[in-house]
Design a protein around this nucleic acid. Sequence first.
RNA 1: AGACCCAUGGUGUAAUUGGCAACACAGCAGAUUUUGGUUCUGUAAUUCUAGGUUCGAGUCCUAGUGGGUCUACCA
Length: 552
Amino acid sequence: MSSKESKNFIELIIESDLAEGKFPEGIKTRFPPEPNGYLHIGHAKSIVLNFGLTQKYKGTTNLRFDDTNPETESTEYVESIKRDIKWLGYDWEEREYYTSDYFDQLYDFATKLIRGGLAYVDDSNTETIQSQKGAVGQAGTESPYRNRSVEENLDLFERMKAGEFQEGSRVLRAKIDMASPNMHMRDPVIYRIKRMPHHRTGSRWNIYPMYDFAHGQSDSIEEITHSLCTLEFENHRPLYNWLIEKLGIYPSRQIEFARLNLNYTVMSKRKLLLLVQKGLVSGWDDPRMPTISGMRNRGYSPASIRAFCERVGIAKRDNVIDMSLLEFCVREDLNKIADRRMAVLDPVKLIIENYPEGQEEWLPAENNPEDDSAGSRELPFSKELYIEREDFMEDPPKKFFRLAPGRNVRLKHAYILHCTGFERDEKGRLTEVRATYYPDSRSGSDISGIKAKGTLHWVSAKHAAEGVVHMYDRLFKVPEPLADKNVDFLEYFNEESHRIIKGVKLEPSLTEAQSLQPFQFLRKGYFVRNTIEHNGLPVFNMTVGLRDSWKK
RNA sequence: AGACCCAUGGUGUAAUUGGCAACACAGCAGAUUUUGGUUCUGUAAUUCUAGGUUCGAGUCCUAGUGGGUCUACCA
């Protein structure tokens, strides 16, 4: 593929493992989402990493739903997650697993710990357990229930499972070290009572394992060789390893990397949820959201997201990626695959004075200059056209290449024009531009010898289709809305992040566009057909603008 | 201020593991262009600080500084 052969630290670890002959059967990774929300670009980084690694080296990646908290999880999320992963272009084949499928094994693991004197049932309430936890620089105190007999613990745990106790009345704790400088080792809770139906196991269970007693064990059950997670789990690793060691199960290895942050947006599920709940966005799949579903509606291609995730790299230091890198990746891909079309977003009438009344001709136009196989289409041309309001200036600066009195300009795929005049209404608003055309300057057969500095896009007034365009901008007004802990990030919400433009003039072929089909609107940017219409009119979402090196 | 982790141009990520600090994005300048797009060329800008080891340190050691994570019956 590319010539750069630089490896990230995880690849280095894997290569060294492989060199030692550790995994003759190949490596195994997993992508372990909790089905309690939608996937975002940060998850995409993890998906691309996990699946990418097993594609590059030999191996397999499991999809595992980490569903140990029935309170927040649902099959609706399971479905959306599966859809997003597939859309990104990854296939977990038959390896679709659920932590809830391991509940029996996990229960056995817990009893094994109890029998080994390494876990105990604690009758203390939440507050007591919290206060006994101690503080960062100071040891905790041991629970009075810490030294119950194995028999009593077994009996109590069995009855917790049987549903004999109320929620919150008892927990199972690992017996480790209340004085450990690592808070996670101070007798962590590993099972809690929850009388609540689970999306897969129904009401079969009254107790559910905690993350620390489910994730690592599931990795082990699946014989995951490299369990990749984000930095905040670094402090959990000693516990992860302790449990594997005491249980004597497959030694999966946890490796942490820095999560993805993007400027001008937020990445946490909780904060994204807040935007939805406050009605600041239309939903999880709003095109402004950094969710996979939002980006899909925005028109980002799977290939561009994958390319982006590969370019950001994998390391352990906190990072904030420039939105411009994402936009670059999107343009890079769309430039190659998006058919060109013409659409006038802010139309003003252009009259070609010397073009015969009633005449029309159909001009050939290539669909994509970057791809000959994309073919061409025909564009209707006539005496009255629409051009972009901003493409005319009465008194232009020297570097303005567009229409102005007395100036020439090329109409893309058509003729060269000479601007002869314009009209404004009483409020000074431009209502019409007038010009003459050079009949022998037609694109492809230009023998006029006239040169024009600029080229404009246009749409024939008579043939134009009407449409609606949704313009999008960054979600927040500042690069790092979370940087100042004294300011609520919602205060930085960009009220102008969504703008609806009506009365857009579209070239006729655009009415046949497929839902989510990407286009480049010439000189404007990349757009996709929205999945829904607006009063019967086609709607297009702006994905990203074209790079614009014309600064005034 | 207990433990753990991190520190390389504006932003990210590399550096054959101790041997001339590079790649991408962004910026700037120019060429090409029937999209002010694409493409191409050029350009500026980098090893947190102080010691130490070494012929040689971005890399190893010590201390400091700065930042992150951790005290949920969430994951």
